[in-house]
Amino acid sequence: MANYLENIRPKISITQYRIALRVLIETFKGIKQAGIVNIFIIGTMAAILMIFGAIFRTSMSLSSLVNELGNVLEVSVYLKSSADPNQAAEQARQLSHVKRVKIIAKENSWENMRKDMQLPNIKNPLPDTLHVRVDSQKNIKSVADNLSKQSYVEDIRYAKDISEKIRVISDISHTATVIVLGIVGFLTMFIINNTIQLVIQSRKKEIEIMRLMGVSNWFIRLPYILQGSLYGMMATIIAIIPLSFLQGYIMQVHRFLGIPNSENSYWAMIFLLFVLSMIFGALGSLLSIKNKLKT
């Protein structure tokens, strides 16, 4: 017995495989033991994950909408009559967040206007104009402010209100996603933690015997951790069903608005749901069992 620390240490071999198999058996035993409670846990978690998934997916869709609209929005810069359009365009291109600058010569503008409005042949009253496209919707205001300070600018116009509203909606949806993510994490861990505590309570004697007979703490912990993870996984599978309907609806809206379809966002959401629910589930279990186990 003198070298028991060396002798008893299991070799990495078929023994480890058997232990892993036993951990799985114990995991399913725990799930079986929870009985009808399983349905409540998985159902509740599925509902929570569905709400999170819906908000997350909508937020991603809004982001692509915002980007699309942001690309359409541009600043119209009306130049002073003394300004050289090419020079002004060159200077505008040097400003940060400016993606593209297009010169609209006053002759062209006037010709178009005369045709559209059937105006008589009078002196051209229009100024030369620059159409300045910004790299991102959120930078429109700062670019417009910058342009208005330039010496060659007479006046500027852009859809200030729309831009502002889009930015606010986008910010709100992002914030909501983060808040809901926090709530989801907390609720998932809370539900799993309480459930696993109940399971642990019902298997208290078993745990004590295993501990006193030399079963390692990880062997005792792992089935509970896996159980929490499995709850997360099963809840995600259920949550995906209504979320796939939402995805179909979002695709229709995208097609209607001419926004590129975002199939990747859907798969990203599913992946995120699986990862988060399984991690939070495992953490909830780990917290329960850790407190119950001393050496």
């Binding site: 028991y4 620390l5 007979m213 030399g214 079963v215 390692s216 703490n217 050496t295």
Partner: peptide, 14 residues
């Protein structure tokens, strides 16, 4: 150490 305690107990019957 705590992580060695199971090995001690495996050599005992309680």
């Amino acid at each position: 150490p705590d992580n060695k305690v199971p090995y001690l107990r495996r050599n005992m019957g309680i």
